[in-house]
Design a binder for these strands. Structure first.
Lengths: 333, 333
DNA sequence: CTGAAAGCGCTAACAC
DNA sequence: GTGTTAGCGCTTTCAG
């Protein structure tokens, strides 16, 4: 049962009795086509089951309908949700998202971006602002819309949508101080590679300093943020510094681990010890104890980034867009 | 600063002083090229910074270097990890993964697959075996390698890699019965659309039936599986059936919510009430109480699926591959 | 082993 | 409005 060759634009044109160009124009609503012919073409296309070949269109036109997305990890639900938002934002545009995972490795990131650029994507969505210089060069010279996401603390190549992690850290510190906490500890994972977590830490520390205080102790570890790591580091930290009344974590996963430790150890949360995470993941709400967190609009960030690429609008205005989100603090009290 | 046109194969050929074809062959190691020329070409390519245009290659050759991945959701960490595994499996092959999210909507799935096929991908990785007939037609006639993942209970279009959810459910039931549990409840979300969760439920129920028992009560809800939903449904279920000594959940997220309820309600877990989830997510290990789960090798599944598409090997053997994984039960006792 | 010719399927530029 | 002519950058023939 020889599978028939997939119909091409020529087939549609022949079927409709017009030229390839008219068919092309009619199908993508470009240029002017008489209503009669437009209908003719559309019916013909439907009849023979024509599906355009975006590969050919991309090669011919300047830009492909691909949107490259570069994220550091997919094990982290946060980035999965960003992807999800991007998929939503692209919806109906006929574009396809392609993704690349860097595992927080700058060299891998360079490779991934370079590789993606070879596809002549319509746009590139890249996580973060702190790429090494050669990667930035790649992005600056790329003949595509570049959108950097998740971060605002720095100088974007072009458009960027995200939030200030420094400010987010500071805001959380202010809120915790206002809630009467005085003895702070910190627990974080992968700070060597996660520049945004580092910025939150610094923002938090800076705010404490402004109030004449600081972290009494910190516990950090390389590698992924897991609840298990959070639990262990918290146990360790509290054993050494039982006087702490507040711990700031680099994210909710670690904070949840901290909560689990406290439950197991019979530590009263948040009364005796207040735990603060970051992201506002869903499960935070249903933990048996309340913890503080900053809710980040990651799906919205993805959606907004996708929209910037999908919409050619904004009249080429030379000032690149900068969409600012602010995480919302929830002390859970 | 006029950005120079990106170098093409012709440029490389000219630079190396050979024909386009020799350059092409040398660069992708196809056909025979004299070592001398091969070196000449490679150096020339490096010198002028040549990066191939996969769009053109795809249009010219039969298949593109794109791999389509169709998943129901990205809000669920499980599928994000599958994607992650796919990215690993593709690594170094020069292929690009493109993804589409269906939100468990069969119509959306049809559209996504159809759209992806238009790119002439090298392969398609699709979640599940239970597509509607028209979607199956699309897949069967697709001139690409199709790999269905996550499920084995049914007839695959071609290759498939995953596990039997029916068997997984049954195995968990057997294990719980062996552990002495006698009064079973069930909590699930989104069973109307998640056929695999349904299969686990059925497998579990069938096993109970073989032992002359069954679920005393079930609580289900539409929509996503969230810890919050798990917590609420558990509270509801236990209020109505305080005599239960075991609850089977459609996944770990719900089970965690159940655990949180029990902690808050002072119910002894697992002593008085054993909770069993599915997936073996990382956080299960660090929960303050132990719950049972089935560990699923989702990253491995992704990696294996990618490999099937990346490797042309296995000598065209007409028997499509079928890679079987078995979840490993951990009662957490 | 190497090269010349002929497209892949589509669209940008011009004519008409 | 509509058709024609050229490619996009690569690979597949098929001759040498």
């Amino acid at each position: 049962m020889a599978r028939k060759r997939r119909p091409t634009l020529s087939d549609v044109a022949a079927e409709a009795g017009v030229s390839k160009m008219t068919a092309s124009r009619a199908l993508r609503g470009a240029g002017d086509v008489s209503k009669t012919n437009a209908d003719l073409v559309r019916t013909a296309a439907k009849r023979i089951g024509y599906v355009g070949n975006p590969l050919a269109a991309s090669l011919s036109g300047k830009r492909s309908g691909l949107i490259g997305v570069v994220i550091p990890s997919l094990t982290n639900i946060v980035f999965a949700e960003v992807l999800s938002g991007i998929a939503e934002g692209i919806e109906g545009s006929g574009m396809q998202p392609v993704f690349g995972v860097t595992n927080y490795d700058p060299d891998k990131e360079y490779e991934v971006i370079r590789n993606m650029l070879s596809w002549n994507p319509a746009g590139l969505i890249v996580t973060g602002l702190d790429q090494p210089e050669d990667t930035l060069g790649l992005l600056r010279n790329a003949p595509v819309s570049v959108v950097q996401i998740m971060d605002l603390d720095g100088t974007p190549v072009s458009a960027c949508v995200g939030m200030s992690h420094h400010a987010a850290g500071a805001a959380m510190a202010e809120a915790l101080l206002a809630a009467g906490r005085t003895a702070f500890g910190y627990v974080g994972c992968g700070l060597d590679r996660d520049t945004r977590a580092r910025k939150r830490f610094e923002g938090f520390a800076a705010a404490l300093a402004r109030h004449g205080t600081g972290f009494e102790a910190t516990r950090t570890r390389e590698g992924h943020s897991t609840t298990q790591a959070g639990r262990e580091l918290t146990a360790d930290l509290m054993a050494a510094h039982p006087g702490l009344d507040c711990i700031y974590y680099s994210n909710d996963d670690l904070a949840a681990g901290g909560a689990f430790h406290c439950i197991a150890a019979g530590l009263e949360v948040p009364g005796a010890l207040l735990l603060a995470g970051f992201n506002g993941l869903d499960f935070v709400e249903s933990l048996p104890v309340r913890i503080a967190t900053s809710r980040t609009p990651r799906r919205e960030i993805g959606r907004a980034a996708a929209r910037i690429i999908v919409d050619p609008d904004r009249g080429e205005d030379p000032v690149a867009q900068r969409i600012v989100f602010s995480p919302r603090i929830d002390l859970g009290l």
